[in-house]
């Protein structure tokens, strides 16, 4: 089974965000970059499927700059076999459709039996690239999987929907996006880290399709006025409820 996993490198969730001089993107200095947490679930799931089958191939695919390789190496250290970096400038907050097109162009000839991705990238918060990829390839998409079972040429996924959960199924090849809870990603072992350095990582130049949107400005969230601690213990409960009703007017 050949499994392609779409992996994006993103700033660590703890990273302090400083807006760069262009006023449209972040200053990458001092930012630690990591694999998108949802993509870690996708990599782990691919490895589990390969291990359960006793054979197979896991390929990680990234659209990003030259410096996006560490996340791919991390995936390889976890156990992925190889990687393809579609090298493009300014991919971090690029139009999702352009990124999906670049991925689709590569995936269409790879002969993948399954494509895994994260439900969203925590930098741009797009929630779109993987679903678009499926649509562009005319393949079924099973988003936000909390469990995945592959059997008899079908993928079956359980996912949360508003007010409950549902089980959905589609024929493979298809695209599945990972939600938290799908699995517990493994930590790369030292041996894996050593091996990862020698695994094939192909770099291809691509140019992203012209974007339909333009970033005008990046700004910090509006500063909220300092909150106030109204007191200690249950004695102030009634005062709080009054404030919520009369001052904040939220009750």
């Amino acid at each position: 089974m050949k499994i392609v996993v779409c992996v994006k490198q993103v700033p660590d969730t703890e990273a302090k965000i400083v807006i760069g001089n262009d006023g449209k993107s972040i200053d990458p200095a001092d930012v630690k970059y990591v694999m998108n947490p949802y993509d870690e679930f996708a990599v782990e799931e691919a490895l589990k499927i390969k291990e359960a089958n006793g054979e197979g191939e896991v390929i990680v695919l990234t659209v990003g700059g030259e410096d996006a390789q560490p996340a791919m190496r991390t995936a390889m250290a976890m156990g992925a076999d190889s990687g393809v970096l579609l090298k493009a400038e300014q991919a971090e907050l690029a139009d999702g459709l352009s990124v999906a097109k670049a991925l689709a162009n590569e995936v269409k000839d790879m002969g993948a039996d399954l494509i895994l991705a994260g439900k969203m990238a925590i930098d741009g918060y797009g929630h779109q690239v993987a679903v678009m990829l499926g649509e562009l390839l005319d393949l079924p998409v099973l988003p936000t999987a909390k469990s995945l079972e592959i059997a008899d040429g079908k993928a079956t996924v359980v996912r949360d929907i508003e007010g409950g959960k549902e089980t959905v199924t589609a024929a493979t090849p298809c695209i599945v996006t990972a939600e938290k809870g799908l699995n517990e990603p493994r930590y790369p072992a030292l041996k894996g880290i050593m091996q990862a350095k020698r695994k094939p990582l192909e770099i291809k130049d691509v140019s992203l399709a012209e974007e339909g949107i333009e970033i005008l400005e990046m700004s910090y969230p509006p500063k909220k006025p300092e909150g106030r601690i109204i007191g200690e213990g249950p004695e102030v409960a009634a005062e709080l409820i009054k404030l919520l009703r009369d001052e904040a007017q939220v009750l």
């Binding site: 925590i122 949107i213 333009e214 700004s219 910090y220 969230p221």
Partner: peptide, 20 residues
């Protein structure tokens, strides 16, 4: 306007092409 980086920043984005 939309949040990015988990709400640590906001982007102002213009639509250049329709439909969007």
């Amino acid at each position: 306007k939309r949040p990015v980086y988990a709400g640590k920043a906001f982007l102002k984005v213009a639509v250049k092409r329709t439909p969007t």
